[in-house]
């Protein structure tokens, strides 16, 4: 059993994008805030903080989840994937490249979460229908692009993979 008193700072060690990080978090510190404020990984964005907008979506132990609905102390020991880990040596991932080609972002605020979701979605469902892509995207809010470019970009990559 682990007990952390209110206000106490607890050491949290996580692997983010293959690299070990360690920092301190109060029990109530959201994972999204821990990533940004403590680990200085600013790629993960914070929007609504109640699980609706999807901007803060990260991959934890293989699944895309809301980092604003997890406490940092819950993620102790976890493998976390964020948008910073998608490119390799400065080369965009095929999905990121498709986002650029299809103009699937404008301001880019929602993009990190969508990329993380879509990456895991395509791992589990490599050849989705457009409807399935749109259903997955219903978990993200984008106020710029109108989603068309995002759908096209994801389908581009799905087509390449199949």
């Amino acid at each position: 059993m682990l007990r952390i008193e209110p206000g106490a700072r607890h050491r949290v060690t996580v692997t983010v994008n293959g690299r070990l990080y360690s920092g301190f978090a109060e029990a109530r510190t959201l994972l999204s805030d821990f990533l940004r404020h403590e680990l200085k990984l600013f790629g993960t964005h914070v929007g609504c903080e109640h699980g609706v907008c999807g901007a803060c979506t990260v991959n934890i132990d293989g699944r895309a989840v809301r980092s604003c609905l997890l406490f940092a102390v819950q993620a102790d020991g976890a493998e976390i994937g964020t948008v910073e880990g998608l490119a390799t040596d400065g080369v965009l991932s095929p999905l990121q490249e498709a986002f650029r080609r299809r103009h699937a972002l404008q301001c880019g605020f929602c993009t990190p979460g969508i990329l993380i979701s879509a990456t895991q979605f395509l791992e589990t469902n490599p050849d989705p229908t457009e409807d399935e892509v749109r259903e997955m995207l219903s978990g993200h809010i984008c106020r710029c692009t109108g989603y068309e470019g995002i759908v096209r970009a994801i389908l581009d990559v799905a087509g390449d993979a199949s």
Partner: peptide
């Protein structure tokens, strides 16, 4: 929007 302080208890069983 951040939670108010609380005691965190993780049960293992």
């Amino acid at each position: 929007m951040k939670p108010a302080p609380f005691e965190y208890c993780r049960a293992d069983t």
